[in-house]
Design a protein around this nucleic acid. Structure first.
Lengths: 193, 193
DNA sequence: GCTCACACTAGAACAGGTTCCAGTTTTGCC
DNA sequence: GGCAAAACTGGAACCTGTTCTAGTGTGAGC
């Protein structure tokens, strides 16, 4: 068995389940990800899904973890653009937001799962938060005070998350997410430029 | 019938339903607010609840609206304490947080409902947000630039909401909510003192 | 006071997430 | 290869939010 503690066929099964969730979610959003459908689409028994994921929300949250890690790798390959600190931070957050814009239904699904109270989903939520924080932090210069930087990253993470929830709940459009984050970034960072 | 469009007995029924939800929620949190139990506790039929509230989340969100309005009245009676702007803002946000601390189970219930996608719940969410924003805004001096003030209030609202969700999902303790908001307030406001 | 539209009730029915079970297949180990 | 343990399967069952139905009040306008 591999380093993850799963045999090859198990890893494949788990992968098929995530793929099925992604596929159903990107077509119809959260409600369309029905566990019975995920099971048949993935070609596994319903009960098997629950061997790998503690709940529907956990399943969707795991897919978001993969997405966040992906984004992290991309950002480290193509560092944020911008003359001043606030521009760089806005650039990286807009890239994150644009990624969700491209898959609105799927984003609705995963963001909904992101505010679930399932404990296993909560681990994913924290993981996503950590990844986002480190992505944002990577836009800062090395000589920036680390404690202040972390505080600022957390605040921006809160704004990003809260705006996403607002978008998912149709309080306002997706473009608002980027705008809101940009406003926050300027309020927090312009004093350092 | 009264100004609200409800007869006296209807207003009473509606009130009993909310009271039942409050009572069940403050004992056992979100999961303990079961619609069948709400119905029997309130002494109404299950279907009747759905005449007044479109969903469980809507019901809980309405109770939060009442709570927020309450807080708004209290704050306008006893204005925020503090020498400098950031202290005042922190004071008012800590009062909001303390209110939830006193009823942790109930807060878990209403905050969970606050991130629901039900459209009627969404109206409540926006209402709560507006009330919170105006409460925070009331800590600012009259001559503060209104647009900047509103931007700052929204950012603080995001931090508050996101931290509450984090608390509800057990990412960290309730005291963290106040701390996180305080950090954000200092980052945003110390430059104006 | 009558009446009609509408609200309410009890309870069944439905939907989808989650759990359970009996039987079968895989897997790790000797 | 043979065996015990663990994983998987199909499917029923369970739970709780939500909807529906048939019958019973109830109150506003005449």
């Amino acid at each position: 068995m591999s380093a993850t503690g799963l045999t090859k066929s198990q890893a494949a099964r788990r992968g098929r389940v995530i793929d099925a969730a992604l596929s159903l979610g990107s077509d119809g959003g959260y409600d369309a990800v029905q566990m019975r459908d995920v099971a048949t689409t993935a070609g596994v028994a319903l009960g098997t899904i629950y061997r790998y994921f503690s709940s529907k929300d956990h399943l969707l949250a795991e897919t978001l973890v993969e997405w966040a890690n992906d984004l992290g790798r991309k950002v480290s390959r193509k560092p944020p653009k911008g003359e001043v600190l606030s521009d760089k931070v806005v650039d990286v957050l807009r890239r994150a937001t644009r990624g969700m814009e491209l898959e609105p239904k799927l984003s609705e699904a995963v963001v909904t799962a992101l505010s679930s109270t399932d404990p296993h989903a909560a681990r994913c939520q924290r993981e996503v938060g950590d990844v986002m924080n480190s992505i944002i932090a990577s836009a800062f210069p090395d000589d920036f005070d680390a404690a202040t930087r972390d505080d600022i990253c957390r605040v921006l993470g809160h704004v990003w998350f809260s705006s996403l929830v607002g978008w998912v709940n149709r309080w306002y459009g997706i473009n608002h997410v980027g705008d809101e984050v940009e406003i926050a970034a300027h309020l927090l960072l312009d004093q350092y430029d």
